[in-house]
Nucleic acid binder design. Sequence first.
DNA 1: ATTGACTTATGACACTGTGTCACATTATAA
DNA 2: TTATAATGTGACACAGTGTCATAAGTCAAT
Lengths: 207, 207
Amino acid sequence: MPKQTFLQLPEGKQRALIDAAKKEFSRVPLHEASIANIIKDAGIPRGSFYQYFEDKEDLYYYLLNQLSQENNKKITAMLKEKNGDLLGTLEDAFRHMISLRHDPEHGELLNHAFRNMNYRKENTMANSMYKESLKNERSQTLELVDTSYLNIKDKQELLHIIKIVGAITFHNLVQVFVHDLTEEEAIANYTTQIDLIKRGLHRNEDM
Amino acid sequence: MPKQTFLQLPEGKQRALIDAAKKEFSRVPLHEASIANIIKDAGIPRGSFYQYFEDKEDLYYYLLNQLSQENNKKITAMLKEKNGDLLGTLEDAFRHMISLRHDPEHGELLNHAFRNMNYRKENTMANSMYKESLKNERSQTLELVDTSYLNIKDKQELLHIIKIVGAITFHNLVQVFVHDLTEEEAIANYTTQIDLIKRGLHRNEDM
DNA sequence: ATTGACTTATGACACTGTGTCACATTATAA
DNA sequence: TTATAATGTGACACAGTGTCATAAGTCAAT
């Protein structure tokens, strides 16, 4: 999380640093990115960088969180659009997310992010780390879900369903970015898998 | 993948290096581990290390792959034991995997691995990278699965089911290691989720 | 036994990049 | 105006990597 000092900086200086950071994190994945490049490009001295952020990760996750927030809003809107039909929203949401890889502004950054996905990135993208009202946010989105579509007996199981679809969605996203799947392949795989879990993996005796 | 030179080394020298590596990778996660520590502990000069391995990652993934192979054998055995009941094997397999975190030999290494899980590690643990006969191996395990338990129409869907349960299982494993869940919590979560996908997430109209 | 060709061993070194700290500058308020 | 706090700055110490010239070992052919 950026330090107070950074947030009080004049707009232009913030922008310069953020832009330089985006550029560097688009060039190479996080672990190869160098602070030296970022500050050179932003035109600020090394010492200043450490006034603003703890370290490279701090800056990176701040950025990633911001991107994710915009994105989460879009997906929440889709869910609302579909009147809380969670499973029905998934394909559209997935399609939207894979379309981001060709976004000129953040495509490369996301490419690197997904090719080097780890728990912290996944968590940052899924939730909204720096937001205090995490639990409130969560439950607001939760409230949108119409549970009458779902084969569950309580609220607790809804949380598990979200974890399930989250895990599968992320897994598929990583596949897309790592193996450069075409949009058709990606969506075919994803919908097959979502269909499977919708109807259930286990064969009923009476079928 | 280790270089030829390493594999031709006398048993004792290999052991020393492997043991030192295990020690270092148990101390800290991969990105914090240092070659300097490993070679100091193993008593070999820096130059030699680079005769044997490309770099730190090369050594790390060699090690991780070896651990995973043992493990995969155990799980394949479980599946055979249960006569190919894939879904029925999952809970036992999961239980077995989380028990590993208290293994004195590799527990800490696995802790770091899961807390910093990424695509490559997941892939290394799931498959067996260095094995030439990857496809054969896979299909051998595939053949073990009794598809009559499963709600699928073709072989292709079996592959998707494996991806689904793989994604969910890994996701749960990461949760266990990151949040230090108790065995009971971990298994409760996991079985709930597996039950949900077994019976299907979507509510049937006629229910 | 000696030679030559090849393989393996070695550690000093150049290089890259990080985070810190003493000091300089600027802002704020009394 | 002056004291105090906040921010800016870049030289520097430090940690770690991968390479390379050179040394040492192996072994087959003479």
